[in-house]
Amino acid sequence: MKDMHDMNTSLLEVANLSVTLHTAKTSVQPVDNVSYSVKAGEVLAIVGESGSGKTIMNMAPLGLLPAGVDSEMSGSVRFEGQDLLSAGNGKLRQVRGGEIGVIFQDPLSALNPVRRIGRQIAEISERHLGLTTKQAEKKVAELLALVGLPDPLSRMQQFPHELSGGMRQRVGIAMSLAGEPKLLIADEPTTALDVTVQAQIVELLKDLQKRLRMAIVVITHDFGVVSGMANKVAVMYAGRLSELGSVDDVLLDPVHPYTRGLLKSVPSLDSEIGSEFIGLPGHPPDLSRRIDGCPFAPRCFAALESCREHRPPLLPVPHSAAARVVACPVVLNSHAEAV
């Protein structure tokens, strides 16, 4: 009964999504049978290293892929009940920038260098909300004030290169909000920024999320961002989900060997000065090859012979919140014994 209710309030429902990319030389499958959901007002962090497929998983269904790449998708991505994979380009354009806002890693690449900031943002409000030029300009001034740009009216007249990195990202955020989205997809929103600015942007996103009651999917490799703003975390490795659960569960008590190793690899201000750094051995697998068992097995301390043969299913963690799943039967067994 509870599950039914959850299903109904899910804003974004991704089920068995696989993405295959074909280029002239090879085919790779950066997303392999992934399912997750985002409820209204929830912040989901998708964590993974480069090549884990986290960006493509979010951008491909929205039709945002680099030129020259052919993609093939299966499964379903439902936004408010409507499948985005079967939606036409027109519908996608309407959703993208409107009900789903997107923040890019490099705010400069998302802005047109030769047009004034105010106009660029206003255009989005005009298109998606049907505002007049006057109304849109007023809305832009409000948005720029909302993201904490001092003196928004004169900022609207500026060009992107006249702003600092932090200011640009604020403009990028304002732009993603211009269509009054219900869901914000933020792709590495703080990676290009310094620590002090990064802290400001995380605060801002958290604050906006509360005030506008949006859902956010934040794609990141930085556990600092995850712990700072997410409710829920999905950990990805080699195109597959390895662990999914609430932020407190996953970060404080990681179960999957990959999540554990990754968390230990993050140096903290509490680690011993002069001590050896902890990392994971080896490197991620080649996604253009077929992976039979668990993709993490070659780097895993707990791997058994069977791990290399069968793909581990996502199983619920015993004695834990219902929403918590892990793709590692080996650790789950010992975990169950320990509890």
């Binding site: 620590v195 002090t196 930085d222 600092g224 995850v226 712990s227 404080l252 993050v266 903290s268």
Partner: peptide, 13 residues
Amino acid sequence: LLSAVPSTNPVEE
């Protein structure tokens, strides 16, 4: 600078 360094502990954070 030091106060801005994020922690991986969500409760502390």
